[in-house]
Design a binder for these strands. Structure first.
Length: 516
RNA sequence: GGUACCGUAGCCAAGUGGCCUAAGGCGAUGGAUUGCAAAUCCAUUAUUUCGUGGGUUCAAAUCCCACCGGUACCUCCA
């Protein structure tokens, strides 16, 4: 089965075929770094990180770029408000963004270009547009002329007339057409400014992505991603600028992810770019989560409640084009499912003596895990599940469908353990088979970017003291159980439960414990 | 007003013309296991059903129409 991708431009799933065989260029619109990243900012990066992982798995050499918008009206206003320089605020917020990406396991991005590092490239592109009649200067500004572009509107599927029909505000009547948009804006005093042929100013709102993607990935790129909210006007304008400047097809596959919504509020909390739109809804979310007003970083707002891996898994458990209902309850639900997988890892480690996380995992479908050590029937079942997992991914990156197969694999592996009573006794061959099974599981898990490293060990003590005390207590309880002193054993377990520590007995081994 | 999107079990969610007498997770119920639990395994959990009503088709959750309900976007200088 070959990869099919839904292209917003054609509104159809198309067979994926990159411009250059074996290579894929991918650009994702990144954030305007004027405030801490919120959970919605994580949606795009997580999805496209997953897209890259899968493309690599099926053999492509992928270059993945996310831009950082570090000059923009919002940024300027916010910096003024805080009494900071634009640069300092941008740097601080970029760090926060990176922190959160790290926690979410987004580490496949090859380059994060900054808008301010590419002003020259933007000016070049603007000049080209002015020269070829697609743009015109006006009092220190430069506007893109939508009427000079005959297929303007093809991405969002609307005509200039339609767009103007709903315009609430009387547009600038100096422009040739009210729908014309700024490529370059003359700057007021006290605003960041760069020299240009049209006077000091700063770039318009869309030109950076056009200039940077062209500079870093070429005039024609394979995949351009972003939130659905960016389709218009941002991507439409990017498309118009780029194609008018280069005369080439700008993007082969436009991929737009659904936005995150919050239950009843259903306000938008998740564009990637924050190019426009008010922020009240997302502030509400952040405020609700953080228990205080004002936007909080994802780290404090969400990760304080749920492990980032659970959040990532949650984001990928629904289709990327659908809106996601964000709620801590939903993520907690996902987390419970994950817990069963972590338990399986622990069980495998206990049986095989090998930590599943330390296993080297194939990252290419070419050399997938060898399952020959397993009984034929089990191997066949796992192979079939792997096939269905890949089929789902090949069908427009259906991570939700793929993940279902991961859980079936869990059931299959746990069944293999239970039916053969491996937790009591396992032959070398059975251990090898079990390890192979868990390797395949991790091979697929890695594709959606999870199970790559152990989450904080639930049994890990905060300090030596708790660990030592727990060892002691559980030893005493084990002695009590040996003497069939159930009253004492149960009392210990119940009392620990009251302290939010769960104890579970393990056959032929020390009891397992964890907080919660 | 214009342009799109969504509505599948108690909850989350995949499936978008026949392999659907609809994946998977959470939850629930029964059984195995356990000193009792937990975990795990086995089984059951939408049964003319996929918002409602029509239609197309040999065949629809999947296509078309209407309706109901929910959502997003319609600019950059106001």
């Amino acid at each position: 089965m070959s990869l099919r991708v839904y292209n917003t431009l054609t509104r159809e799933k198309e067979t994926f075929q990159p411009l250059e065989p074996g290579k894929v260029s991918m650009y994702l619109c990144g954030p305007t770094v004027y405030k801490p990243a919120h959970i919605g900012h994580m949606v795009g990066p997580v999805i496209f990180d997953t897209v890259k992982r899968f493309l690599q798995y099926v053999g492509y050499d992928v270059t993945f770029v996310i831009n950082i918008t570090d000059v923009d009206d919002k940024l300027i206003n916010k910096a003024h408000e805080l009494g900071m320089t634009v640069k300092a605020l941008a740097e601080q917020m970029t760090e926060d963004y990176f922190d959160n990406l790290r926690l979410m396991g987004v580490d496949s991005v090859d380059k994060f270009p900054y808008a301010t590092d590419h002003i020259g490239d933007m000016l070049e592109m603007i000049q080209r547009l002015v020269d070829n009649g697609h743009a015109y200067p006006l009092d220190g500004d430069v506007y893109f002329s939508v009427t000079a572009d005959d297929d303007y509107g093809k991405l969002s599927h609307r005509s200039v007339e339609q767009m103007l029909a709903g315009t609430r505000v009387e547009a600038n009547n100096r422009k040739k057409n009210p729908a014309d948009f700024a490529l370059w804006k003359s700057s007021k005093a006290d605003e960041p400014a760069w020299e240009s042929p049209w006077g000091p100013g700063r770039p318009g709102w869309h030109i950076e992505c056009s200039a940077m993607s062209s500079k870093l990935l070429g005039d024609s790129i394979d995949i351009h991603g972003g939130g659905l909210d960016l389709m218009f006007p941002h991507h439409e304008n990017e498309l118009a600028q780029s194609e008018s400047a280069s005369g080439k097809c700008f993007v082969r596959y436009w991929m737009h992810n659904g936005l995150m919504q919050s239950g009843k509020n259903t306000g938008k909390v998740g564009g990637q770019h924050d190019k426009h739109g008010d922020t009240s809804a997302e502030d509400q979310i952040a405020g609700k989560l953080a228990g205080s007003a004002g936007a909080e970083s994802v780290k404090t707002a969400v990760f304080a409640h749920q492990h980032p891996e659970a959040v990532r898994f949650f984001l990928l458990s629904t289709h990327y084009r659908s809106p996601i209902d964000f709620s801590l309850e939903n993520i907690a639900n996902t987390a419970k499912g994950l817990e069963g997988i972590y338990r399986m890892f622990e069980t495998v480690e206990r049986i095989c003596g090998t930590c599943p996380y330390s296993i080297e995992v194939p990252t290419s479908g070419e050399n997938t895990t060898d399952l020959s050590a397993l009984p034929a029937e089990t191997a066949a079942e796992l192979t079939a599940l792997r096939g269905r997992f890949l089929d789902a991914m090949n069908d427009d990156f259906n991570t939700g469908g793929a993940i279902g197969n991961l859980f079936e694999m869990r059931k299959c592996i746990n069944g293999f353990i239970a039916h053969n009573k491996l937790d009591q006794q396992a032959t070398a061959e059975q251990k090898a088979g079990l390890l192979a099974a868990i390797t395949l599981f991790r091979e697929l898990g890695q594709l959606v970017g999870v199970f790559r490293k152990p989450i904080e060990k639930t049994t890990a003590a905060d300090d030596g003291l708790v660990g030592g005390l727990m060892d002691l207590i559980l030893e005493l309880r084990a002695d009590a159980r040996k003497e069939k002193n159930w009253a004492a054993a149960d009392k210990i377990r119940d009392q620990l439960k009251a302290l939010n520590i769960t104890v579970e007995d393990v056959k032929d081994g020390p009891a397992r414990w964890q907080r919660g």
